[in-house]
């Protein structure tokens, strides 16, 4: 197998993992699937386009800013739209409606034409005599750092503890003084910020237009059920599996890899109806 394929599958995996972990976080606390998650990815990509490409701010600062801005949009939406509506199924429909809202709004502001972001890491690097695109290597490295940071945040900080408690036993967590409502606002912000980061680091590699959010969302949905809902580890495994199918398997069997990515979800769920690492849900 050519080494470029290996890097390529890591790139895809990191995109899916970042998307899936945000989706899983929001789901575990709020109990709803955020169908507009892909559009937050798109917003993140546009933020990078405007901050890094147009305004010329440093790539990493732009990334942080885009995550903060999009995370803030997510917080506003949770606080002023989702929470007043309350009921989960209505909230899900609101997220579906938000897809059109964001896509329409961005088309209005930035136009339907695709934009591009210059790579912050141009050129190729030689590793053990193999020439690899430094853009792709950098993407993988950034993604790995982000995923480790997210893991440490959830496992090692007090806020992370509150988050886990609110996810497992919201009522009990409330009794112990955790403000579950505030935690869910925060989690919506973090989840959307993660999607924006994914969009931001992928933007220079692909392109930016108002409709780029659809595909990553579908893959993230598949990733979280492969791994099992409500577990970050599951999202990572699901992302890696799908990334490998989308790249390594695509190299060997071409077009049919897409059928495999959908098929494997059903096969896994047949044998483990709660995903590889999830808890059973009736």
């Amino acid at each position: 197998m050519p080494p470029a394929i290996f890097i390529d599958s890591l790139v895809l995996s990191s995109m899916y993992i970042l998307m899936a972990s945000g989706l899983v976080l929001v789901f575990s606390i709020m109990g709803i699937l955020n169908f507009a998650h892909g559009q937050f990815y798109m917003l993140g990509a546009y933020a990078i386009f405007y901050l890094f490409q147009q305004a010329g701010i440093n790539f990493f600062i732009s990334l942080a800013l885009s995550a903060a801005i999009v995370g803030f949009v997510g917080i506003l939406i949770e606080r002023y739209i989702m929470r007043p509506i309350g009921q989960p199924i209505q909230a899900v429909v609101v997220t579906i409606a938000l897809i059109s809202v964001f896509e329409g709004l961005i088309t209005l502001i930035a136009g339907p034409a695709p934009h591009s972001v210059t790579s912050a890491f141009p050129g190729n690097v030689d590793i053990f005599g193999v020439s690899l695109s430094s853009e792709r290597l950098a993407t993988v490295v950034i993604a790995v750092i982000l995923i480790i940071a997210l893991y440490l945040f959830i496992q090692r900080t007090r806020l992370g503890l509150a988050l886990r408690a609110a996810a497992q036993q919201p009522v009990a967590a409330g009794l112990f003084g955790i403000q579950v409502a505030r935690v869910s606002t925060l989690v919506m912000g973090i989840g959307c910020g993660l999607a924006a980061l994914a969009g931001g680091i992928m933007a220079p590699m692909f392109y930016v237009d108002p409709w780029i959010g659809g595909q990553p969302l579908v893959m993230a949905l598949l990733a979280i059920v492969i791994g099992g809902m409500g577990s970050l580890g599951g999202a990572v495994v699901g992302g890696i599996v799908l990334g490998m199918i989308g790249s390594m398997l695509a190299y060997y069997i071409g077009f049919w890899s897409q059928l495999i990515s959908f098929g494997i979800v059903i096969v896994i769920l047949l044998f483990r109806p709660q995903g590889l690492f999830g808890q059973s849900e009736k």
Binding site: F27, L33, L221, L222, I224, V225, M229, V265, I266, L269, P273, Q274, G275, S280, E281, K282
Partner: peptide, 8 residues
């Protein structure tokens, strides 16, 4: 159950 069915 639930969302697993939806995604399936």
């Amino acid at each position: 159950g639930g969302l697993y069915f939806s995604i399936a």
